[in-house]
Design a protein around this nucleic acid. Structure first.
Lengths: 177, 177
DNA sequence: GTGTTGCGTTAACCTCGGTTAAAAATAGAG
DNA sequence: CTCTATTTTTAACCGAGGTTAACGCAACAC
């Protein structure tokens, strides 16, 4: 069976308005989510109250807190809607169980996890090896629609810098061209 | 069938002496590796010649260049032995094929990929949210044996800073306690 | 309208890490 | 052991980003 149709059939549609949380860091949440429309932000809150953005989730993509859904610990991050969002919620165990029953489903999940790993590897590389200015330039090139949709505040936290620093970087880039 | 015994039976044992490369960034390499003994370093070389360390591989762990083995592009990083290392080499396609034939194998691969994803998520979090000094402190706590076995040069590149900066951090930490 | 709230920019100051270079300490090779 | 390499430390200088605070601006409520 197709993974997408499996999700559609076994999942439950849920809607979150702008600024509503899907889950909060520290809570438990066993679900896997597929975003049909809208825009989500996954973010960490540090001990000192500072915030950093793990990722933005665009429609058509999926998100789950592995620590909460797979190992049953607390969510390591919070998930909030930046726009009204329509998502499909499905218990992680339900997928887990499907991979036990269906060989096809297991193979499909492997594919998904492989792309997920490659995406994470790319992000890890950028954070490790590229300076903030370069990370910003690449983000502008690869995801111009994101720059439009999201506040500069959140872009900065996603790049691992402060909004003030991002404002300076933008100015520097302008003065170059 | 057990994943480890599958690797043992279908893989080929290879040995790399200190400083020998398993593969180089830019090459193609379709293999999945299991490290039986020794120590490996996976690292990126940037356009300007600078180097950053993606990860250290301890014995009992596995490593593969997903971009090369899965999507058949070039290796995105180089892999070198820091000590004489004994590893099992197995074509990625061989595992891929095994997941097609065997449901058990597919389920085992899912488990492996899930832990891999969680490990990467942790690293991503540290690079994004923690200052270099804190990353170093945590590394000392969680992997003291690594600090012993690896040059400070490589530790610094793993933390995303220069050896000079790491030397200063160590001094700062000493003067505190 | 007025007030409020949040976002983006700018400036001043400070800290941390990068760069370069030199010295000190260790490790390897013969 | 001796003589090189390599690694680590230290110092001086610089630049990028953090912090704080002020200001301008737009959106929105009232």
């Amino acid at each position: 069976m197709n993974f997408d149709s499996f999700i559609q059939e076994n999942g439950k549609q849920v809607i979150f308005k702008k600024h509503e949380h899907v889950f909060m860091q520290g809570e438990s949440n066993d679900n896997f989510y597929f975003l049909r429309s809208g825009l989500l932000k996954a973010y960490y809150v540090l001990e000192d109250g500072r915030e950093s953005v793990k990722s933005f989730i665009l429609s058509g993509n999926t998100i789950t807190s592995l620590t909460a859904a797979y190992t049953k610990e607390q969510c390591s991050f919070s998930l909030v809607a930046l726009q009204e969002s329509q998502l499909i919620e499905i218990p992680f165990d339900c997928i887990e169980e499907a991979t036990r029953r269906s060989h096809d489903m297991a193979r499909k999940v492997i594919e998904i996890l492989l792309s997920l790993s490659m995406k994470k590897e790319r992000r890890e590389y950028e954070l490790l090896s590229l300076p903030a200015e370069e990370r910003y330039r690449q983000l502008c090139e690869t995801s111009p629609q994101l720059i439009e949709a999201v506040t500069q505040n959140d872009i900065a936290r996603y790049l691992g810098i402060t909004p003030v620093a991002l404002s300076r970087i933008k100015k520097r880039l302008l003065n170059m061209n």
